[in-house]
Design a protein around this nucleic acid. Structure first.
Lengths: 348, 348
DNA sequence: ACCTCCTGCGAGAGCGCTCTCACCTGCGCC
DNA sequence: GGCGCAGGTGAGAGCGCTCTCGCAGGAGGT
């Protein structure tokens, strides 16, 4: 645990290179408008002294921080039990890093934390925020919007009516669900059930909508409410089996739910996929690959979603290097819905 | 994506309260040495203006940032596929938040990133670092130590000889392994095999050592090398079954490995736990609870480890509030090894 | 009554940087 | 040959805060 040492300042570099502070500053920030020999001398001085700009001093005058907050509202442990979060974070990190921005992570624990996060964001410590809010009634998004911090949401916020200025990145839950159900239909299944996710989350609602898109006049008894957990999947599966013993397929709102359903099916002596075909959602690898049989499921490119969120935010902040080659006619960033793909394994 | 607005300064608060900047500063930072009526007036002015201190300006003079970097070296995706990381992060976040420190997340992707991280840490942007390095040959820890940033490691670094100033928090891998194996012995098993983890990681080595502690003169053919993945577990299990068909128990280096082993055992018609008892490690819930049969495994309090890491670091930085009530005779922080507990489920 | 001491508050410097502006070249041009 | 006009460079202010002083003014001692 060594103590931090005295670090060289711009002044020191200037002295060593025999130029003014201003010139060093110019070189450090790109070097335009400085003649080559001087640039070289300054570069060497920087090198020799191991100079690293003091971000605090810089921020003080530029009012930029080159830092983005990632806010993860996490009322439930569930969020943490899956690799989602980590992958998304990785995508975000990659994109931010590529543009020299730091990632400040804000995890919230219950309502008390909301004020803290609000204060932090409003405090102007970061240039923008990426916010994950899963629940329809989460006060956090509103709080953040009011803080006046440029924000991109992960997952469609519940109150977003699609027209307000809300920018979000979400996977095509509805389309993915449709594809999953169509796959089951294509398999010749006719009594297709759905176990929903926690319906206070837009992803669950969207997947249910996708199911309904395909199964327009479905018997309502073929829909059972789950909560994205294996236990919820078991419970719902029992209900379904009880209500509709003749069902021949199940589309589960996520892989965890599907895993629970699978267990109940086996318990009841139903063979998968022969008697009942099962499709999940998420392609959560440690689960989907380990179930018996391995799960056919809908994959989303989580990491890409994270990257996209960051990119959208940075673009909104005009923080992207011009040489990145985006469509030049870029206006205000708009929400993005990323595609899903069906991964066929053994369960359907 | 609203733009950030002009925020009130100390000066503004001072004017409004009719006092000097210095007095406002004092109040904002605890309010000692300011008489009650003034404190009250300043508080009100702060409230009315919605004043939030500018951290950049503050850092500039205090040379403190109230920010801690969390560095996750992540050469493999594996790290991300499990909930470990998220839980640890949560523990860290809680502790840092409790002491008003921010969490700056640095994920590294391959060697190129090491320089970047080194530069960042050496750049004095944060007060300390929490570093997760899993591999024996990882250059990152050395790099960080050289950067002169107070650091606490997550997991025992490979090159730590126990005497150098390295501070780390690790779970009692060796002790946990001993407990697991003793449990198997207690079950009357005599031909106990071990599937190791990736042996370039200290946790794998320590678990193997724990196994050997109990099974002193074990037949070397009862030890097969895995890599912490289900596929590795399958491979190793096949080897073991091939070499020692008479084995009656397996201690797997982690739950993923155990899940793989479980599958191969079933494939070979061995009943678990009747024919072969299986114990895992980690108590990675989505895996351990979902296997068939549910896995007996060794649990570690991941979140607490994270919290501990943060606490150790903050203590080293004298960043802990005095009223926290630690042992008063606290010297330089020392490494901590956290206990494990055996969780008995059905597999052993 | 005086002096000392302490406590509470304000003045002001300065943290390390950026950025505006003025200056100073050297060039082409009339 | 003088003038204008670049473009390159330096001087200096100032970002918002903390912290050291120094100076009041009241309490306490003699």
């Amino acid at each position: 645990m060594t103590e931090t040492v005295q670090r060289p300042t711009l002044e020191a570099v200037a002295a060593r290179a025999g130029v003014s502070r201003a010139t060093v500053s110019r070189v450090v920030n790109g070097g335009d408008g400085v003649r080559e020999p001087l640039v070289e001398r300054v570069r060497r001085a920087v090198e020799e002294l191991g100079y690293v700009p003091n971000q605090a001093a810089r921020s003080l005058v530029t009012k930029r921080h080159d830092a983005i907050a990632v806010v993860v509202a996490e009322p439930e442990t569930r969020v943490f039990a899956d690799p989602f979060f980590a992958l998304q974070l990785r995508g975000i990190s990659k994109e931010l890093t590529a543009h020299d921005n730091q990632l400040v992570l804000l995890l919230t624990e219950g309502r008390d934390d909301h004020a803290r996060v609000g204060r932090y964001l409003a405090g102007g410590h970061v240039d923008g925020a990426l916010v994950f809010s899963l629940h329809l009634d989460d006060p956090l998004p509103g709080l953040i919007q009011r803080a006046g911090v440029p924000t991109v949401f992960g997952g469609r916020p519940g109150w977003s009516d699609g027209t307000s200025g809300v920018v979000y990145v979400d996977s095509d839950n509805r389309g993915g669900a449709r594809e999953a159900v169509r796959h089951l239909v294509g398999l010749g299944r006719t009594r297709i059930a759905h176990i929903t996710g926690a319906l206070d989350q837009t992803s669950a609602v969207d997947r249910l909508d996708g199911f309904r898109d395909v199964m327009a006049d479905v018997d309502p008894r073929l829909i059972a409410e789950g909560d994205f957990t294996p236990a919820g999947g078991e419970r719902a599966m029992r209900e379904l089996l009880d209500r509709c013993p003749g069902l021949d397929a199940v589309f589960a709102a996520n892989d965890l739910t599907a895993a629970g359903a699978l267990r109940v099916l086996r318990e009841h002596g139903r063979r998968v996929p022969e008697d009942v075909a099962v499709v999940g959602f998420d392609d959560m690898l440690p689960v989907a690959e380990q179930t018996d049989p391995p799960l056919t499921t809908v994959r989303q490119d989580i990491e890409e979603m994270g990257r996209l969120m960051a990119r959208l935010l940075l673009r909104g902040l005009d923080r992207l290097h011009p040489d990145e080659g985006h469509d030049p006619a870029v206006g205000a960033p708009a929400s993005v819905v990323t595609p899903t793909t069906l991964v066929r394994r053994a369960s359907a």
